[in-house]
Structures are given as C-alpha cells and as structure tokens.
C-alpha cells in the first residue's frame, strides 16, 4: 500500500446510502457543520467516488443496492477505506433477516471500520475516522 502521512491528513469522503432510513445520513451531514469542522483534519465530502479515499456506507444494503454498492466500491481508486455507519450495516438492525436484504455491508464489500449506533452520534463517527487513521498508520508501519 502506498500510504503516507499526507494520505491520512487528507481523507476525502464519499457518502453512499444503501437503503438507510436517513437517520445516519443526517448525522453525517451534522459532522460537516462548523460545530464539528472536519476540514481541520483535511476531511472533505466529495461528490464522486473517483475523488474519494473513504467510503461511508449507511443502511443495511437492500437487494437493489447490492450491485450499485459494489460498482461504487470498485470505482474508487486505491488505496481506499470503507467505513460502515450505523447498526443496520453491521447486522441489519431492525431489518434483521428481512426478505429484501443482501447485507449486512460486510458481506457485500470489505469493511475497515464499523461505527455502531442507531443513529451513531457525530462524535462516534469522528471517533471512527480517528480509528480509520490509526489503522492506516498501522498498515503504513507494517508495509515499510
């Protein structure tokens, strides 16, 4: 992996909704407000998966979204990180064992960091980003 300190301090985030109830999505928007100001750490929300380093997935991955999620994941240039936001993406949450689910997220694409909660608080999502950076630093240390 071509990781560097610059990579960790310039994470561009792409948000993907795989069938979420919008609760987690609103919390993601809340992080981007001046109150939490993630741009301090170089975190920016981008509009295209081609520009992104981190994929934020919300929702339990409904049947129709499976192929889209895989395609968006494959469109992201390496190196990349996947964060799963919310309980739905980990277990299906209240939609557990539903006939309409192909998820959870971990069965569709590889996930690096899970942030539990329904919805998780903005602080929890920021903690998830910090965990992701720590994981990247560990991989950087192992590869060098």
């Amino acid at each position: 992996m071509r990781l560097s300190p610059s990579f960790n301090r310039s994470l561009w985030v792409f948000h993907f909704n795989s069938g979420s109830c919008n609760g987690c999505d609103i919390e993601i928007v809340a992080i981007l407000t001046p109150r939490y100001d993630p741009e301090r750490f170089g975190v920016r929300l981008v509009g295209s998966p081609k520009h992104a380093d981190v994929l934020l997935v919300t929702g339990p991955v409904t049947h129709d979204m499976t192929s889209r999620l895989q395609r968006v994941y494959e469109q992201m240039p390496d190196p990349k990180v996947v964060m799963c936001i919310g309980t739905c993406g980990q277990s299906g949450g209240v939609f557990y064992d539903s006939y309409n689910l192909d998820g959870p997220v971990g069965e569709v694409i590889p996930v690096d960091v899970y942030v539990p909660g329904c919805p998780p608080r903005p602080e929890a999502i920021i903690d998830g980003v910090v965990k992701a950076i720590a994981k990247l630093e560990r991989l950087e240390g192992e590869s060098s």
Partner: peptide
C-alpha cells in the same frame, strides 16, 4: 469567516501529495 478553525495553510500541498500516490483510473 464561517466560525470554523479550518485546515492548515499547507493542506493543499497534502492534498496534492495524496492525489499523486493514488491510482489514476
């Protein structure tokens, strides 16, 4: 001006370095 702290002034240099170490699809 938006009552934020904002990135350090060298942030664009980091962004460019990061983009240079990524795949170009």
């Amino acid at each position: 001006m938006q009552a934020r702290i904002g990135p350090p002034i060298r942030q664009p240099f980091r962004d460019v370095r990061k983009l240079l170490c990524k795949d170009s699809i």
